[in-house]
Design a protein around this nucleic acid. Structure first.
Lengths: 198, 198, 198, 198
DNA sequence: AATGAATGAGCATTCATTCAT
DNA sequence: TATGAATGAATGCTCATTCAT
């Protein structure tokens, strides 16, 4: 249609670019990334990257969205088989941590997104984010209904959990003692469930 | 003596540079910041900035350290008058949130530090960070001793709280509904104390 | 493939850059040269200069090599038609002087090369230099064989001649009386051949 | 008198500055030299360097003049005790080579002077240079009168010898085989005396 | 459609020189 | 008189983006 979005996107190429984008952005940061390097790694010309994604920022957002989608899928398939709200939440938390342990680059993408763009991402991102919040709010709501969880604003609970998990994995970099992200996140999860009061 | 680190640092000038550094870095990001702009705002020559701080990265770290010190002072003076571990923690959490509400730039500095340098900051930073962890661990320990808090690894508890608060304030940017950072952090704090289980 | 060394070098452009390089370096010195000026004169963007030559030093070396090649060609075509070792040497000496009289810039390039880099030039230069020494050593050797020249180490003789000529043309700048480079070099050549002893 | 030339020049300080100037200029080149480094090494403030020498270029010229004076003295004391023109010249040539072997920095100063300033040095330099030419021309003249040397223009002979020696020592840098400057200069001297013809 | 050569705005850093103390 | 803090012009090099092929 427009020249910005090729009529017949070659999904293979697009995917290769995206995949390498994530790697390079994660390693070099947004400003530190040379689009040429992404093109080289993806085995395409620099012009092709621009043909597919328009500009560097759009490319970054596409990468970030791609990562967000992966995370969404991962959380969904982790929670759905579990039985009961608590089990679902526990499974999701574990999946969240594992996701970033397996793909440290993805974590950096989230960090960069926050640092560079502060939530000024396109509608699409916010929609997906919102969708995730809703899905978990539903779980929490059911937990409240069934009596597993204390009553309260489900969205607020979800937001707190999300923030705590995000903080755990992002903050883990600062940990000197080699506690794995997984351990840190698990600890956070437990506290999240039971609190620290006696 | 090298001219890099002035023998008689003009504290007024140094402070002006630091203050503007924080503002500009926060707004433009690390790579996006033109040192010239800091110099202009601080009312000094660009050479003076380099004379005082050596290079851009060192300047950033000095800014980040400066912010960290402020936060440390703020948390200390918030918690010390409070009575009992729980009260101390609550007061600290509130102070943490207020600190960033009052100085949104400071939050961005923390975010940039994580994004750009991933904990590769100079020793000094890590020492101060460690000191803060210890101070809070002590509070938690006393809370456990007095029976206010459930028994557990105090450092792990502190780390979880720190991560959760960090996550709350950093993540708040993504919140569409205008929930203030304060509200989000307060909610996180309550859950942190009591958990979500019924 | 890196974009640093263009796959299809545009010889016209490359040559234009090289030609202007020599002029500007000769006039301004190595450090005094602003690559932007070379780009402007060559009618290309600054980025293009860097694309073709990588950095300022490499550009300088390319210029110096280019000059050395010219000199080599000039000496070769001057000596080859002459008959006998002495005639060949005389012709070469004259050509050497004329070369620099016609292209004073080239002389400055040699001077700068010595001043700035002290023989730390890339292999290629040293190889060409060595080749020139060998070619002349051969001439000297034949002169010795034919009895035209006194016996001795041909390479040492060549090196002495080279040094003397180099000294003549470089040193000529200091001459107040407007003796031309040509005259100075010719005088040096004659002494070189016959000595000053009676 | 003027502020440029301090009324009571502290000869010790002046000398220290000059001595370090030579070292630093020789190592770093003219443009590459940071006046601060000279000041540091000389143990004075940067302002003092400027007070004594006015500006960087003047400082360089003073250094070059200082070196030229040393060379002049060395050549004079080498030639005067020798008997006969040839002996005087031989002794001078040897002294010339030894001078630069002992003080490689001095050689670089000469090279830099030629590269950077092309004989645009102040009157004083040219006078001393001229004086040296005259002194040697006298020796040559006497050699011609006594029949030791072939008749010719004594100044031209001196100039040729000077150029050849200069060329020898300067060009020596390019010599791969580790022939010492001394050997190269001696070889040049012999050829200069007897020529290469059989 | 795909490419990659060309461009030039942009920025970190240096250093000669000045001048207030 | 001696100093060294302050300055800002100067310059090497990068890289997002364009566009002719």
């Amino acid at each position: 249609m427009s020249a910005q979005t090729p009529a017949k996107p070659d999904v293979t190429k697009e995917d290769a670019i995206l995949r390498e984008s994530v790697r390079v952005f994660a390693r070099e940061g947004f400003r530190g990334t040379d689009v040429q390097e992404i093109a080289n790694r993806a085995g395409v010309g620099k012009g092709t990257v621009y043909r597919y994604f328009g500009d560097k920022q759009t490319l970054f957002w596409a990468s970030a969205y791609w990562v967000l989608e992966q995370l969404h899928g991962r959380l969904a398939s982790a929670s759905s088989p579990a039985d009961g709200a608590i089990a679902k939440l526990r499974a999701s938390c574990r999946a969240y941590a594992e996701f970033f342990v397996e793909n440290p680059d993805y974590l950096e993408i989230f960090v960069l997104d926050r640092a560079e763009f502060r939530g000024r991402a396109p509608e699409r991102h916010q929609e997906l984010h919102e969708r995730m919040v809703c899905e978990f709010a539903e779980i929490v709501e059911q937990g409240m209904a069934s009596g597993e969880l204390r009553r309260g604003d489900p969205r607020a609970v979800v937001w707190s959990l999300g923030s705590a998990l995000y903080g755990s994995v992002v903050f883990a970099t600062y940990s000197k003692q080699q506690q794995s992200i997984t351990e840190l996140a698990e600890c956070a999860t437990e506290i999240f469930l039971r609190g620290i009061l006696s």
